[in-house]
Nucleic acid binder design. Sequence first.
DNA 1: CTTGCGACCCATGAGGGTAA
DNA 2: TTACCCTCATGGGTCGCAAG
Length: 377
Amino acid sequence: MSRRTWGTVRRLRSGRYQARYTDDTGRQVSAPSTFATKADGYRWLAKTQTELDSGRWIDPKAGKEPLQVYAEHWVETRLVRGRPLAPRTAELYRAQLKNHIVPSLGSTPLRQLEASSVRAWYGKLSGPAGPGQVTAAKCYRLLRAICTTAVDDNLIARNPCSIRGAGQERSSERPMFTLAQVQALVDAVEDRWRALILLAAWTGLRIGELSALRREHLDLKAGTVSVKSAVIDVIGQERSYGPPKSAAGRRAVAIPPHIIGDLEHHLATYAQPGAHGLVFVGPKGGPIRRNNFASRVWAPAAEAAGLPAGSHLHDLRGWGATVAARHGATTRELMHRLGHASPAAALRYQRAEQERDAALAAAMSAALRHSDGTTSA
DNA sequence: CTTGCGACCCATGAGGGTAA
DNA sequence: TTACCCTCATGGGTCGCAAG
Protein backbone atom coordinates (compact mmCIF):
# COMPACT_ATOMS: atom_id res chain seq x y z
CA MET A 1 0.00 0.00 0.00
CA SER A 2 1.55 3.25 -1.07
CA ARG A 3 1.33 6.35 0.98
CA ARG A 4 -1.37 8.81 0.08
CA THR A 5 -0.15 12.08 -1.36
CA TRP A 6 -3.47 13.87 -1.67
CA GLY A 7 -5.48 14.79 1.39
CA THR A 8 -5.29 13.59 4.93
CA VAL A 9 -7.47 11.78 7.42
CA ARG A 10 -7.11 12.48 11.09
CA ARG A 11 -8.63 11.14 14.25
CA LEU A 12 -10.71 13.58 16.23
CA ARG A 13 -11.06 13.66 19.99
CA SER A 14 -14.50 12.10 19.60
CA GLY A 15 -12.92 9.03 18.08
CA ARG A 16 -14.33 9.68 14.60
CA TYR A 17 -12.24 10.50 11.56
CA GLN A 18 -12.15 13.66 9.51
CA ALA A 19 -10.99 13.79 5.88
CA ARG A 20 -9.48 16.97 4.46
CA TYR A 21 -7.66 18.16 1.41
CA THR A 22 -6.18 21.42 0.14
CA ASP A 23 -7.86 22.82 -2.92
CA ASP A 24 -6.07 24.63 -5.73
CA THR A 25 -6.62 28.02 -4.11
CA GLY A 26 -4.77 26.81 -1.04
CA ARG A 27 -7.90 26.60 1.07
CA GLN A 28 -8.32 23.59 3.28
CA VAL A 29 -11.57 21.76 2.63
CA SER A 30 -13.09 19.28 5.05
CA ALA A 31 -15.50 16.48 4.28
CA PRO A 32 -19.11 17.42 5.04
CA SER A 33 -19.26 14.80 7.76
CA THR A 34 -16.87 12.71 9.80
CA PHE A 35 -16.31 8.99 9.33
CA ALA A 36 -16.40 6.01 11.63
CA THR A 37 -13.19 4.56 10.23
CA LYS A 38 -10.04 5.88 8.69
CA ALA A 39 -10.71 3.81 5.56
CA ASP A 40 -14.07 5.55 5.02
CA GLY A 41 -12.28 8.85 5.15
CA TYR A 42 -9.80 7.77 2.51
CA ARG A 43 -12.62 6.45 0.33
CA TRP A 44 -14.26 9.87 0.46
CA LEU A 45 -10.97 11.51 -0.48
CA ALA A 46 -10.53 9.17 -3.43
CA LYS A 47 -14.06 9.82 -4.69
CA THR A 48 -13.70 13.56 -4.27
CA GLN A 49 -10.39 13.60 -6.09
CA THR A 50 -11.88 11.68 -9.00
CA GLU A 51 -14.76 14.09 -9.20
CA LEU A 52 -12.47 17.07 -9.01
CA ASP A 53 -10.24 15.67 -11.74
CA SER A 54 -13.16 15.13 -14.07
CA GLY A 55 -14.51 18.56 -13.21
CA ARG A 56 -17.56 17.13 -11.56
CA TRP A 57 -17.12 18.06 -7.96
CA ILE A 58 -20.48 18.65 -6.36
CA ASP A 59 -20.99 21.16 -3.61
CA PRO A 60 -22.84 19.07 -1.03
CA LYS A 61 -24.85 22.08 0.01
CA ALA A 62 -26.05 22.75 -3.52
CA GLY A 63 -28.92 21.35 -5.55
CA LYS A 64 -31.45 21.26 -2.75
CA GLU A 65 -33.91 23.58 -4.42
CA PRO A 66 -36.91 21.96 -6.14
CA LEU A 67 -36.63 21.46 -9.87
CA GLN A 68 -39.47 23.91 -10.44
CA VAL A 69 -37.59 26.76 -8.77
CA TYR A 70 -34.38 26.02 -10.60
CA ALA A 71 -36.13 25.58 -13.92
CA GLU A 72 -38.06 28.82 -13.74
CA HIS A 73 -34.91 30.67 -12.81
CA TRP A 74 -33.18 28.93 -15.71
CA VAL A 75 -35.73 30.19 -18.22
CA GLU A 76 -35.35 33.72 -16.88
CA THR A 77 -31.59 33.81 -16.96
CA ARG A 78 -30.74 31.47 -19.83
CA LEU A 79 -28.36 33.08 -22.30
CA VAL A 80 -28.10 31.98 -25.90
CA ARG A 81 -25.04 33.42 -27.58
CA GLY A 82 -24.98 36.08 -24.91
CA ARG A 83 -28.64 37.00 -25.26
CA PRO A 84 -31.70 35.99 -23.23
CA LEU A 85 -34.22 33.60 -24.75
CA ALA A 86 -36.51 35.15 -27.35
CA PRO A 87 -39.91 36.05 -25.85
CA ARG A 88 -41.73 33.38 -27.80
CA THR A 89 -39.26 30.71 -26.74
CA ALA A 90 -39.35 31.71 -23.08
CA GLU A 91 -43.13 31.65 -23.23
CA LEU A 92 -43.09 28.20 -24.82
CA TYR A 93 -40.62 26.85 -22.26
CA ARG A 94 -42.71 28.17 -19.39
CA ALA A 95 -45.78 26.50 -20.86
CA GLN A 96 -43.93 23.19 -21.27
CA LEU A 97 -42.68 23.39 -17.71
CA LYS A 98 -46.09 24.22 -16.33
CA ASN A 99 -48.01 21.64 -18.30
CA HIS A 100 -45.71 18.68 -18.61
CA ILE A 101 -42.68 18.84 -16.35
CA VAL A 102 -43.58 20.54 -13.08
CA PRO A 103 -46.70 18.44 -12.34
CA SER A 104 -44.56 15.27 -12.15
CA LEU A 105 -41.08 16.43 -11.23
CA GLY A 106 -41.41 20.03 -10.06
CA SER A 107 -41.17 19.36 -6.34
CA THR A 108 -38.20 17.00 -6.59
CA PRO A 109 -34.99 18.59 -5.30
CA LEU A 110 -32.54 18.92 -8.14
CA ARG A 111 -29.94 16.59 -6.62
CA GLN A 112 -32.53 13.90 -6.04
CA LEU A 113 -33.60 13.83 -9.66
CA GLU A 114 -32.71 10.30 -10.72
CA ALA A 115 -32.43 8.82 -14.18
CA SER A 116 -35.13 6.38 -13.16
CA SER A 117 -37.64 9.08 -12.27
CA VAL A 118 -36.86 10.89 -15.52
CA ARG A 119 -37.44 7.63 -17.39
CA ALA A 120 -40.75 7.11 -15.63
CA TRP A 121 -41.80 10.67 -16.38
CA TYR A 122 -40.82 10.42 -20.02
CA GLY A 123 -42.50 7.05 -20.37
CA LYS A 124 -45.78 8.49 -19.19
CA LEU A 125 -45.43 11.63 -21.28
CA SER A 126 -44.69 9.78 -24.50
CA GLY A 127 -47.29 7.10 -23.79
CA PRO A 128 -50.81 6.89 -25.16
CA ALA A 129 -52.22 9.19 -22.48
CA GLY A 130 -49.57 11.84 -23.12
CA PRO A 131 -49.67 14.81 -25.45
CA GLY A 132 -47.79 13.02 -28.23
CA GLN A 133 -44.27 11.95 -29.04
CA VAL A 134 -43.24 15.29 -30.51
CA THR A 135 -44.23 17.28 -27.46
CA ALA A 136 -42.70 14.67 -25.17
CA ALA A 137 -39.41 14.98 -27.07
CA LYS A 138 -39.48 18.77 -26.83
CA CYS A 139 -40.13 18.65 -23.08
CA TYR A 140 -37.41 16.07 -22.63
CA ARG A 141 -34.94 18.29 -24.46
CA LEU A 142 -35.89 21.24 -22.29
CA LEU A 143 -35.38 19.22 -19.13
CA ARG A 144 -32.08 17.90 -20.43
CA ALA A 145 -30.90 21.42 -21.28
CA ILE A 146 -31.80 22.59 -17.78
CA CYS A 147 -30.01 19.64 -16.21
CA THR A 148 -26.97 20.25 -18.42
CA THR A 149 -26.73 23.72 -16.94
CA ALA A 150 -27.07 22.23 -13.45
CA VAL A 151 -24.18 19.88 -14.21
CA ASP A 152 -22.13 22.78 -15.54
CA ASP A 153 -22.91 24.66 -12.35
CA ASN A 154 -21.70 21.67 -10.31
CA LEU A 155 -25.08 21.33 -8.68
CA ILE A 156 -25.50 17.71 -9.77
CA ALA A 157 -22.92 15.18 -10.84
CA ARG A 158 -24.61 13.65 -13.85
CA ASN A 159 -27.40 14.58 -16.16
CA PRO A 160 -30.34 12.34 -15.22
CA CYS A 161 -31.70 12.75 -18.75
CA SER A 162 -29.90 9.89 -20.42
CA ILE A 163 -32.54 8.22 -22.54
CA ARG A 164 -31.16 7.52 -25.97
CA GLY A 165 -33.15 9.15 -28.74
CA ALA A 166 -35.77 10.56 -26.40
CA GLY A 167 -35.11 14.08 -27.61
CA GLN A 168 -35.62 13.19 -31.23
CA GLU A 169 -38.91 14.01 -32.81
CA ARG A 170 -40.60 11.51 -34.99
CA SER A 171 -43.14 13.60 -36.78
CA SER A 172 -46.13 11.68 -37.95
CA GLU A 173 -46.46 10.76 -41.58
CA ARG A 174 -48.50 13.37 -43.44
CA PRO A 175 -51.31 12.17 -45.67
CA MET A 176 -50.57 12.18 -49.38
CA PHE A 177 -53.43 13.18 -51.62
CA THR A 178 -54.29 11.84 -55.04
CA LEU A 179 -54.91 14.15 -57.95
CA ALA A 180 -58.60 13.15 -57.80
CA GLN A 181 -58.77 14.17 -54.15
CA VAL A 182 -57.23 17.54 -54.85
CA GLN A 183 -59.71 18.08 -57.65
CA ALA A 184 -62.59 17.02 -55.42
CA LEU A 185 -61.36 19.50 -52.85
CA VAL A 186 -61.26 22.31 -55.39
CA ASP A 187 -64.83 21.47 -56.36
CA ALA A 188 -65.95 21.19 -52.74
CA VAL A 189 -64.98 24.70 -51.64
CA GLU A 190 -67.03 27.78 -52.34
CA ASP A 191 -66.10 29.56 -55.51
CA ARG A 192 -64.50 32.29 -53.41
CA TRP A 193 -61.83 29.89 -52.14
CA ARG A 194 -61.33 27.85 -55.29
CA ALA A 195 -58.36 29.90 -56.53
CA LEU A 196 -56.69 29.79 -53.12
CA ILE A 197 -56.85 26.01 -52.98
CA LEU A 198 -55.58 25.73 -56.55
CA LEU A 199 -52.70 28.07 -55.85
CA ALA A 200 -51.82 26.29 -52.60
CA ALA A 201 -51.75 22.93 -54.36
CA TRP A 202 -49.98 23.89 -57.55
CA THR A 203 -47.46 26.43 -56.26
CA GLY A 204 -46.97 25.19 -52.70
CA LEU A 205 -47.41 28.62 -51.13
CA ARG A 206 -47.92 28.70 -47.38
CA ILE A 207 -51.19 29.96 -45.94
CA GLY A 208 -49.44 33.00 -44.49
CA GLU A 209 -48.01 33.79 -47.91
CA LEU A 210 -51.35 33.32 -49.63
CA SER A 211 -53.20 35.59 -47.25
CA ALA A 212 -50.60 38.33 -47.71
CA LEU A 213 -50.73 38.06 -51.51
CA ARG A 214 -51.57 41.27 -53.41
CA ARG A 215 -52.68 41.82 -56.97
CA GLU A 216 -49.30 43.23 -57.97
CA HIS A 217 -47.68 39.93 -56.96
CA LEU A 218 -49.65 37.93 -59.48
CA ASP A 219 -48.41 38.17 -63.05
CA LEU A 220 -50.85 36.01 -64.96
CA LYS A 221 -49.36 36.91 -68.35
CA ALA A 222 -45.97 35.63 -67.33
CA GLY A 223 -47.58 32.96 -65.19
CA THR A 224 -45.74 33.76 -61.96
CA VAL A 225 -46.60 34.56 -58.39
CA SER A 226 -44.10 36.59 -56.38
CA VAL A 227 -43.84 35.89 -52.69
CA LYS A 228 -42.75 39.13 -51.06
CA SER A 229 -44.39 39.06 -47.66
CA ALA A 230 -46.22 36.86 -45.24
CA VAL A 231 -48.67 37.45 -42.47
CA ILE A 232 -47.11 37.25 -39.05
CA ASP A 233 -49.58 36.32 -36.36
CA VAL A 234 -47.94 36.65 -32.98
CA ILE A 235 -49.98 36.14 -29.86
CA GLY A 236 -50.57 39.36 -28.03
CA GLN A 237 -49.48 41.50 -30.92
CA GLU A 238 -51.11 43.18 -33.86
CA ARG A 239 -51.13 41.11 -36.97
CA SER A 240 -48.55 42.43 -39.34
CA TYR A 241 -47.30 41.88 -42.83
CA GLY A 242 -43.60 41.38 -42.92
CA PRO A 243 -41.00 40.01 -45.25
CA PRO A 244 -40.36 36.28 -44.93
CA LYS A 245 -37.75 35.53 -42.33
CA SER A 246 -35.17 34.14 -44.69
CA ALA A 247 -34.12 35.57 -48.02
CA ALA A 248 -35.04 32.22 -49.58
CA GLY A 249 -38.66 32.93 -48.69
CA ARG A 250 -38.81 35.78 -51.20
CA ARG A 251 -39.22 34.17 -54.57
CA ALA A 252 -41.18 34.06 -57.80
CA VAL A 253 -42.93 30.76 -58.43
CA ALA A 254 -44.20 29.64 -61.81
CA ILE A 255 -47.93 28.93 -61.97
CA PRO A 256 -49.01 25.86 -63.96
CA PRO A 257 -50.94 27.27 -66.95
CA HIS A 258 -54.08 25.21 -66.38
CA ILE A 259 -55.09 27.24 -63.32
CA ILE A 260 -54.50 30.69 -64.85
CA GLY A 261 -58.12 30.89 -66.00
CA ASP A 262 -59.39 30.28 -62.47
CA LEU A 263 -57.07 32.96 -61.14
CA GLU A 264 -58.30 35.48 -63.71
CA HIS A 265 -61.89 34.74 -62.70
CA HIS A 266 -60.97 35.12 -59.06
CA LEU A 267 -59.25 38.47 -59.52
CA ALA A 268 -62.23 39.79 -61.47
CA THR A 269 -64.74 38.61 -58.88
CA TYR A 270 -63.35 38.55 -55.37
CA ALA A 271 -60.00 40.32 -54.97
CA GLN A 272 -59.67 43.79 -53.49
CA PRO A 273 -59.31 46.50 -56.14
CA GLY A 274 -56.03 48.18 -56.96
CA ALA A 275 -52.51 46.86 -57.34
CA HIS A 276 -52.16 46.82 -53.56
CA GLY A 277 -55.44 44.97 -53.12
CA LEU A 278 -55.33 41.67 -51.27
CA VAL A 279 -56.02 38.75 -53.57
CA PHE A 280 -57.78 36.63 -50.99
CA VAL A 281 -60.31 38.18 -48.63
CA GLY A 282 -63.33 36.94 -46.73
CA PRO A 283 -66.95 37.58 -47.72
CA LYS A 284 -66.87 40.93 -45.95
CA GLY A 285 -63.62 42.02 -47.45
CA GLY A 286 -61.41 41.26 -44.46
CA PRO A 287 -58.09 39.48 -44.68
CA ILE A 288 -57.99 35.75 -44.00
CA ARG A 289 -57.75 34.65 -40.42
CA ARG A 290 -55.88 31.40 -40.28
CA ASN A 291 -58.04 29.85 -37.55
CA ASN A 292 -61.30 30.72 -39.14
CA PHE A 293 -60.17 29.56 -42.53
CA ALA A 294 -59.03 26.22 -41.18
CA SER A 295 -62.14 25.45 -39.19
CA ARG A 296 -64.78 26.99 -41.42
CA VAL A 297 -63.53 26.64 -44.97
CA TRP A 298 -60.93 23.92 -44.99
CA ALA A 299 -62.44 21.39 -42.59
CA PRO A 300 -65.85 21.04 -44.27
CA ALA A 301 -64.32 21.02 -47.75
CA ALA A 302 -61.78 18.38 -46.78
CA GLU A 303 -64.53 16.22 -45.40
CA ALA A 304 -66.70 16.69 -48.46
CA ALA A 305 -63.80 15.81 -50.71
CA GLY A 306 -63.15 12.63 -48.74
CA LEU A 307 -59.66 13.60 -47.63
CA PRO A 308 -58.13 11.53 -44.82
CA ALA A 309 -59.09 12.73 -41.36
CA GLY A 310 -56.57 15.20 -40.02
CA SER A 311 -55.58 16.57 -43.42
CA HIS A 312 -54.36 20.14 -43.35
CA LEU A 313 -54.10 22.90 -45.87
CA HIS A 314 -50.36 22.67 -45.40
CA ASP A 315 -50.47 19.13 -46.81
CA LEU A 316 -51.33 20.62 -50.20
CA ARG A 317 -47.87 22.13 -50.13
CA GLY A 318 -46.37 18.69 -49.70
CA TRP A 319 -48.55 17.40 -52.48
CA GLY A 320 -47.39 20.16 -54.83
CA ALA A 321 -43.76 19.46 -53.94
CA THR A 322 -44.19 15.74 -54.57
CA VAL A 323 -45.82 16.37 -57.92
CA ALA A 324 -42.95 18.65 -58.85
CA ALA A 325 -40.46 15.99 -57.76
CA ARG A 326 -42.35 13.39 -59.75
CA HIS A 327 -41.98 15.54 -62.83
CA GLY A 328 -38.27 15.75 -62.39
CA ALA A 329 -37.68 18.90 -60.36
CA THR A 330 -34.11 19.15 -59.15
CA THR A 331 -33.32 19.75 -55.53
CA ARG A 332 -32.44 23.34 -56.30
CA GLU A 333 -35.68 23.87 -58.20
CA LEU A 334 -37.72 22.40 -55.35
CA MET A 335 -35.94 24.60 -52.82
CA HIS A 336 -36.73 27.64 -54.90
CA ARG A 337 -40.33 26.66 -55.40
CA LEU A 338 -40.96 26.05 -51.73
CA GLY A 339 -38.87 28.94 -50.49
CA HIS A 340 -36.51 26.79 -48.46
CA ALA A 341 -33.05 27.94 -47.51
CA SER A 342 -31.74 24.43 -46.95
CA PRO A 343 -32.05 21.39 -49.19
CA ALA A 344 -33.18 19.08 -46.38
CA ALA A 345 -36.91 19.44 -47.02
CA ALA A 346 -36.59 19.23 -50.79
CA LEU A 347 -34.50 16.08 -50.45
CA ARG A 348 -37.25 14.55 -48.35
CA TYR A 349 -39.77 14.98 -51.12
CA GLN A 350 -37.38 13.56 -53.69
CA ARG A 351 -36.57 10.60 -51.47
CA ALA A 352 -40.26 9.94 -50.87
CA GLU A 353 -40.79 9.97 -54.60
CA GLN A 354 -37.89 7.59 -55.21
CA GLU A 355 -39.16 5.23 -52.52
CA ARG A 356 -42.59 5.27 -54.10
CA ASP A 357 -41.03 4.50 -57.46
CA ALA A 358 -39.03 1.62 -55.98
CA ALA A 359 -42.12 0.24 -54.25
CA LEU A 360 -44.00 0.41 -57.54
CA ALA A 361 -41.23 -1.49 -59.33
CA ALA A 362 -41.18 -4.11 -56.57
CA ALA A 363 -44.94 -4.52 -56.76
CA MET A 364 -44.72 -5.04 -60.52
CA SER A 365 -42.09 -7.75 -60.08
CA ALA A 366 -44.16 -9.41 -57.38
CA ALA A 367 -47.21 -9.39 -59.61
CA LEU A 368 -45.20 -10.95 -62.42
CA ARG A 369 -43.85 -13.75 -60.19
CA HIS A 370 -47.34 -14.45 -58.97
CA SER A 371 -48.84 -14.71 -62.44
CA ASP A 372 -46.08 -17.13 -63.52
CA GLY A 373 -47.56 -19.61 -61.09
CA THR A 374 -44.40 -21.69 -61.22
CA THR A 375 -43.44 -21.41 -57.57
CA SER A 376 -43.93 -24.48 -55.45
CA ALA A 377 -47.11 -24.68 -53.39
C1' DC B 1 -80.64 31.83 -31.64
C1' DT B 2 -77.13 31.58 -35.33
C1' DT B 3 -73.20 33.23 -37.53
C1' DG B 4 -69.05 35.78 -38.34
C1' DC B 5 -65.14 37.39 -36.21
C1' DG B 6 -61.16 38.20 -33.33
C1' DA B 7 -58.28 37.17 -29.13
C1' DC B 8 -56.08 33.78 -26.98
C1' DC B 9 -54.25 29.18 -25.81
C1' DC B 10 -51.88 24.76 -26.23
C1' DA B 11 -50.05 21.33 -29.43
C1' DT B 12 -47.52 20.31 -33.35
C1' DG B 13 -44.54 20.90 -37.60
C1' DA B 14 -40.55 22.77 -39.78
C1' DG B 15 -36.14 24.58 -40.15
C1' DG B 16 -31.72 27.33 -38.77
C1' DG B 17 -27.27 27.43 -36.31
C1' DT B 18 -23.68 25.15 -34.14
C1' DA B 19 -20.84 22.28 -31.19
C1' DA B 20 -19.34 17.73 -30.80
C1' DT C 1 -22.32 14.52 -40.19
C1' DT C 2 -25.36 14.69 -36.82
C1' DA C 3 -27.54 15.55 -32.47
C1' DC C 4 -28.88 19.17 -29.94
C1' DC C 5 -30.82 23.54 -28.86
C1' DC C 6 -33.36 27.37 -30.35
C1' DT C 7 -36.83 29.82 -33.07
C1' DC C 8 -40.91 30.50 -35.31
C1' DA C 9 -44.95 29.10 -38.21
C1' DT C 10 -49.11 26.44 -38.55
C1' DG C 11 -53.11 23.61 -36.66
C1' DG C 12 -57.04 23.50 -34.21
C1' DG C 13 -59.69 24.46 -30.28
C1' DT C 14 -62.29 27.67 -26.75
C1' DC C 15 -64.44 31.83 -25.54
C1' DG C 16 -66.71 36.21 -25.81
C1' DC C 17 -68.78 39.75 -28.52
C1' DA C 18 -71.88 41.71 -31.68
C1' DA C 19 -74.68 41.84 -35.77
C1' DG C 20 -78.47 39.81 -38.12
